[in-house]
């Protein structure tokens, strides 16, 4: 299947903070499973030092903005010029709205109570919608059913407003990493097509990296 020969990325991983071995182990397993890079939340300088040693595999810094209502907009505005990938977890309606309305945010992960109005605003602000496949892996029973329902609804909004999507396994250790094909199979449970899953693990992350590069000017403008 030629679809799965591209470069794949997982932009929401959490190895033990400050533990070089944990980052290196996660990078080694991700590379073995077919990923070209991972983004580690709240990465330290020491972790980046390890990243340089791992050859043709990249580790990017990501920043998960704390879920504090008052500071969300300021934090996004302050950090939007940084090299870190900015992520907000949409744990409630207020946070989801704040995140969708603020330009400069990269990923809005698993928003609760997402609706057509917020989807339109998020799409206009080039916010990528994140799907946390890790919740399907680790949850069981009623909680998993609710997560599946939520993700199916979010997928419908993303399709309607042509939002970019991203898939993450939310790994906390190297045992939580799943290969891109398995992630695509799991995303099939929420009616995501293989092409959409491929784009969510390859095309969209590459687009975010391009936007974060120092050469990037604006959408549609390129330095030749």
């Amino acid at each position: 299947m030629a679809l799965f020969d591209g470069k794949f990325y997982d932009f929401y991983t959490h190895p033990a903070p400050g533990d070089r071995e944990s980052v290196a182990l996660m990078a080694a397993v991700a590379k073995k499973y077919g990923y070209s890079g991972i983004a580690v939340t709240n990465l330290t300088e020491n972790d980046l030092y390890m990243a340089d040693k791992s050859g043709n595999f990249s580790i990017f810094p990501a920043f998960e903005i704390p879920n504090k209502r008052a500071k969300l907009r300021d934090e996004i505005k302050k950090r939007k010029e940084d090299a870190s990938i900015l992520i907000v977890k949409g744990t409630d309606e207020y946070l989801t709205r704040e995140a969708a309305e603020t330009e400069g945010l990269d990923i809005l992960l698993q928003p609760q109570k997402f609706n057509n109005v917020l989807a339109k605003i998020a799409s206009d602000n080039s916010v990528t919608l994140g799907f946390n496949i890790g919740s399907i892996i680790h949850m069981r029973g009623e909680v998993r059913v609710r997560e599946l329902v939520l993700m199916k609804a979010n997928l419908k909004h993303a399709r309607k407003y042509d939002m970019r999507m991203i898939l993450t396994g939310d790994p906390h250790s190297h045992y939580d990493i799943r290969s891109p094909r398995e992630m695509a199979a799991l995303s099939g449970l929420i009616d995501m097509t293989e092409k959409e899953a491929f784009d969510a693990m390859s095309t969209t992350p590459l687009g975010i990296l391009k936007r974060k590069s120092p050469d990037y000017v604006q959408e549609g403008i390129e330095i030749i």
Partner: peptide, 14 residues
Amino acid sequence: ACISKVRGTRISIL
């Protein structure tokens, strides 16, 4: 892919 623990032991199947 959904198997993450067996008898309390963490596991990953590729």
